[in-house]
C-alpha cells in the first residue's frame, strides 16, 4: 500500500477515474501523463513503483513508451490498458515484459487486482 503509481492515458476522464479508484485503495498517484512522451519523461523523473499505460495515445503510443521505459529500467512494472481487439499488441507488450493488462471498459476490481499482483 502507498505504492507510487504513474498513470498515462490521453483522456483526462480516464485518468480521473483511475486516480480515484487507486487513491481510494491507498496507492499514491505520483503523476499523470497524457501521451507516451510525457509518460516516459515522468517515469524517468518520478521513478514510480508501477506505471499504467494506455495503448492508444498521441505523439507516442503506449507500446513505444513501454519499450522506452524498459530500456531505462528493465525491472519496470508496467500494466497496459487497452481496448478490445488489440490482442496482438498486448502480446507484443507481454513479450517485452509487461506484467498484466486491463481491458476497457474495466471494472474497478480489475485494475486493483492487476496492480496488486504486479506489485508483489
Amino acid at each position: 500500500m502507498g505504492a507510487k503509481i504513474l498513470i498515462a492515458d490521453d483522456l483526462s476522464f480516464m485518468r480521473m477515474i483511475q486516480k480515484e479508484i487507486l487513491t481510494e485503495k491507498g496507492y499514491t498517484i505520483v503523476g499523470e501523463a497524457a501521451d507516451g512522451l510525457e509518460a516516459v519523461e515522468k517515469y524517468s523523473a518520478l521513478q514510480p513503483d508501477l506505471v499504467v499505460l494506455d495503448i492508444t495515445m498521441p505523439h507516442m503510443n503506449g507500446l513505444d513508451a513501454m519499450r522506452k521505459i524498459f530500456q531505462m529500467d528493465p525491472k519496470a512494472r508496467v500494466i497496459m490498458c487497452s481496448a478490445l481487439g488489440q490482442q496482438n499488441l498486448i502480446v507484443d507488450a507481454i513479450k517485452s515484459g509487461v506484467k498484466d493488462f486491463i481491458v476497457k471498459p474495466f471494472k474497478p476490481e480489475r485494475i486493483l487486482s492487476a496492480i496488486e499482483k504486479a506489485l508483489k
Binding site: 483522456l11 481496448a83 476497457k104
Partner: peptide, 16 residues
C-alpha cells in the same frame, strides 16, 4: 489517424 484516435477515445469513454 487523429480522427481514428478521437472515435476510439469517444468509444472508450462512453462504454465506461
Amino acid at each position: 489517424n487523429e480522427i481514428f484516435r478521437l472515435t476510439h477515445s469517444l468509444k472508450s469513454e462512453s462504454a465506461l
